[in-house]
Design a protein around this nucleic acid. Structure first.
Lengths: 293, 293
DNA sequence: TTTCGTTACGTTAGTCGTAAAGATT
DNA sequence: AATCTTTACGACTAACGTAACGAAA
């Protein structure tokens, strides 16, 4: 199909009136009729059912419209993006992250991305209190974040890296003098659970309610991460975090210990179901090639 | 961009040689040069860097190739599909299901789909022993199946329907005379776990290892679903299934009872990450509108 | 009679082919 | 000299516009 044929077909499919379609396309009377007839002769398939009073799509026409419209729009976007890249006016890709380690990885990938596609990359820290807000509002186009993520409108890519978990204890806690802590040993402790707006499946995976042998672990909720830190500092319980957290959230009244018995935290890429533009896909590709390094 | 421009650009981007590109396109010497020059003048952006010995894509050219190629292929598919629909030669959509209730829903949606898009729908039962095999090999293009599904190469749609769980007991089991069973009451029973090739997260959600109060539940594995049924029939344990299973797997030596305390099973649509063709999307749309009814 | 889709025909833009000229190894 | 890209120019296809025709409200 030629461009003018695609435009004529899609316009007519939308307007369902030869007159309005020719007007919108700025063509002469009869032209749209000629173009559509030629298409139908070439395909050997009617695309519209028409009387002099009504124009309707045939099933074949509906299929063509449904599949052609997104393809045609992508052609236009492709040209616009290429021109933007060539002129250096491409808009920066907005990328979210929820861990400093993810930011490192993103910034390394950003250089290679900008080299090839231009436009640059802007990073945004995403608070765990609202982990999917920015990606849902379009503030970021993709995000590197803690797994698992199971949201109907978000697609999850492969695991990028894995972070060991630490346990944060008050320095007077009975376990604080040990070299490391097993999950089993937390049976008699209270676990400070960072609730926020994190999904339930996320909390259930990160904060177990039982030890491997089945003994219960008491929970107490904290609405904000800083609140969780304070509660541990006040001796009201222990909590978990990824290994890097030690560098950012050190306090004099607490100690961090390696933690065994619960799986480490996976980090992966997420993006909106319908947001996988070629630029986004390209950045995901680069991220995944940097995964190993 | 016109069709001949797209074809010239993509061919040159692949061959990186004006001579080979003109040959492959069956055009006269110099034509590809003219077409590319015209594009570059119109866009105001160079797409290729060329000496008389080397042709390479500029960053703008790379962007254009990456985004244009899939769009162009979709245009061709769109035409082919529309012609197939119009001639009644469209290939049937292959849909998998793992529960009889899903089959009902699929068949209702299939009528509406065939009405609009033609080609029909073929359904295939997917064995839980290998829940993702057929969709990965392309035997089915989408599948209605038990959630959760967390596979990197599969996309999960919204929840279509929810099925209550039953517990299957031997008729001499201490709980068999009750009206219903609570999860807590299974603390002293053995649970027959249908293992097969189901992913670990799936088994962990469907077969708890502890009661709500933390008492352990013993597990014994069965490789096949029929084996699980036999084991329950032999009094070696109890097992779970969705409500409809009672109709299909009734045995004289066992009873089915309503089961409380574990969440019901969600059923949803899954499809391959890169398999969301317009036809597949259309069928998903129809399925989701039939969800309520 | 007006409105809408179709048909007929002449005009023109632009795609294509031929042929020759630069450029680089 | 050989191979590749570029330029110049004429021919012809087909996209386009103008104008008239047929059918339905």
């Amino acid at each position: 199909m030629e461009r003018h044929e695609i435009e004529a077909f899609l316009t007519l499919a939308e307007e369902l009136s030869f007159r309005r379609a020719t007007d919108r396309l700025g063509l002469a009377q009869g032209r749209v009729t000629q173009i559509i007839q030629k298409l139908e002769r070439r395909f050997g398939v009617p695309l519209f059912e028409r009387t002099s009073r009504r124009v309707a799509l045939t099933p074949a026409g509906e299929t063509l419209r449904d599949e052609l419209l997104p393809a045609y729009e992508q052609v236009r976007r492709a040209v616009a993006n290429a021109v933007a890249v060539g002129r250096g006016t491409a808009v920066p890709l907005q990328v979210g992250y929820s861990s400093p380690m993810a930011a490192d990885l993103i910034l390394r990938a950003a250089d290679r991305f900008t080299e090839r596609y231009g436009g640059g990359v802007q990073i945004h820290e995403v608070q765990l209190a609202d982990p999917f807000g920015p990606i849902r509002t379009g503030q970021v186009q993709l995000q590197v974040t803690e797994l698992p993520v199971r949201e109907d409108d978000l697609v999850v890519g492969t695991v990028l890296f894995t972070e060991e978990r630490l346990v944060m204890l008050h320095r007077d806690h009975p376990l604080a003098h040990q070299e490391s802590v097993e999950l089993e040993e937390l049976a008699d402790s209270t676990l400070v659970v960072f609730a926020g707006d994190t999904p339930r499946y996320w909390r259930e995976l990160h904060y177990p309610r039982h030890t491997p042998s089945g003994r219960p672990i008491a929970h107490v909720e904290a609405a904000y991460w800083q609140e969780a830190l304070s509660m541990v500092g006040a001796g009201k319980g222990v909590t978990f975090a990824c290994a890097r957290a030690e560098l950012y959230y050190a306090r004099p009244d607490t100690v961090w210990l390696p933690f065994h018995g619960a799986p480490p935290i996976d980090y992966g890429i997420i993006w909106p179901r319908h947001g996988a533009t070629p630029r986004v896909k390209a950045f995901i590709d680069i991220l995944e090639t940097y995964r190993a390094g």
